[in-house]
Amino acid sequence: MVIIFRYPPLKHIRLHKLGYSIFRDPDVRERFKQDPYKVMDEFGLTEEEKQLVMSRDGVKMYDLGIQPYIIFALVWQAFGDWPSREKIKQLGYGRSIPQRTIER
């Protein structure tokens, strides 16, 4: 059983809150663009979490359990980058979808 849009693990609450705030709050978003480490300190991120955010690697974030909709904020809204068709390939998306059966 594959659940993709999964329950957010509590251990990621600081990261999730940062992503939510970057989406919701223009002030946080602008300040993040100016000085990301200062904002990440405000949200209490660990060094490991800071590295993950700065990697801009949405695939890695997903594999570590970050909620997919927060990944949008942490990768694309935080850094102003929207993944076009060409970028998708460069960034390592397009992974083969999970097995499923269609019973007609």
């Binding site: 949008f72 998708i88 979808i97």
Partner: peptide
Amino acid sequence: HYPGTPYYGNVDEEADMF
């Protein structure tokens, strides 16, 4: 569609047609 996941860029057309 698979927004915000590594599967982004896929579309399961067979499932959609079902």
